[in-house]
Design a binder for these strands. Structure first.
Lengths: 209, 209
DNA sequence: GTCTATACCTCGATAGAC
DNA sequence: GTCTATCGAGGTATAGAC
């Protein structure tokens, strides 16, 4: 059975009840903002529900449990980060990868909630039993792989010194990124994350370029 | 009024009830280990009491509130850190300050509980309302001051390049320290914090030495 | 899809006996 | 110095009406 073009079975109609998808997105956004301040453990689903404009049970209709909500938040975050960094294109290699990280820092500077979300969750999720633990491991692992490959590629092309300690450079880059955000949260606006991160990148380029 | 040497008014006597000081120290140690895993918000005073070998109320006899316990923990930590780094002597200046930081990292490598304590608490305490917020600000502020002075002194003595961006170097050093510990907690023993931190220090020495 | 009501737990803190 | 008992608040999750 087929229909002529333009024919729609389900036409748009005004409705009081928002669609499940709308409610989910609103809730995820609310959860991001609240987790960013209180972390996962310090935020109640009632808080998220209130910010979403739902009762607690109303929220639990869309996310059967608090951890389900967390999973949705993490998935959302990972996706947006990947979209920003790569956006369908090939991941940059060589020092360009580190320049891409600078862009990421610039983007983060405009999104305190995302910085807070990561800083809080990653500290909590260090613990093996935490519901975001695996996510955190995956996050680090993919970041390490990408930056590691970028440096190895740079060695092949002669942009990176042959004796550059890849693992240490990669880990330190990630460490600067995370530690800087931690400091920045204490006093947002007290320094430029971009400028500071650039200083770091310049230093490693100078040393192992 | 004076007593002959060797004469003691209060002689040691066996007692069932431990002294207040003993109980306090036991509780602080227990709290450190528990805060290191669950953070401040994620740890109940009942947990601390159990680990100390007291009932919840028994613990609250020594620390009138949960925040009082936290304060004692923070004070304890700050003191031990200062003792380790300076130990009554003058704080080292120039690049020696950064070498001292390497020693600190080496010490931390043997104390996962301290690393955990700092990572969790500092992430929570980023929030202005957190009971450890001021402590965190003070911690960063004193660390920044010391490392900043060290670099300025190095400039005077010609060990540090005149155009070295002091603030960025200092902040990045602290960032590496913090971020590295965060990664290390995810998989303690998966890499050497000392070696990695040395790589960072070498890089900045190379660039601005 | 959203709500109220509720079950059941844990938490921080206080009161008061020993 | 340590305990039991208890209060009141707030947490997750479920049942069931609309």
């Amino acid at each position: 059975m087929s229909y002529p073009a333009g024919y729609r079975i389900e036409r748009e109609r005004p409705r009081r009840r928002q669609s499940g998808e709308t409610a989910r997105l609103k809730a995820i956004q609310a959860a991001i903002e609240l987790f960013a301040v209180g972390g996962y453990g310090g935020t109640s689903i009632a808080d998220v529900a209130a910010k979403t404009g739902l009762s607690q049970s109303g929220l639990l209709h869309h996310f059967p449990s608090k951890t389900a909500l967390l999973s949705a938040v993490l998935e959302h975050r990972s996706k947006e980060d990947a979209d920003f960094l790569f956006d369908g294109e090939q991941a940059p290699l060589g020092w360009e990868a580190f320049d891409a990280m600078v862009s990421l820092v610039a983007r983060n500077s405009t999104r305190p909630d995302w910085v807070g979300l990561f800083v809080r969750l990653s500290a909590e999720a260090t613990e093996p039993g935490h519901p975001a633990h695996q996510w955190l491991l995956d996050h680090y692992s993919s970041l390490r792989r990408w930056l590691g490959e970028a440096l190895e590629d740079g060695k092949v092309h002669g942009d990176v010194a042959q004796d550059a300690p890849v693992e240490a450079i990669v880990n330190n880059t990630i460490a600067v990124l995370d530690g800087m955000q931690q400091q920045w949260l204490c006093a947002p606006g007290s320094f430029s994350m971009v400028a500071q991160f650039r200083t770091f990148i310049e230093s490693i380029k100078t040393t192992w370029g």
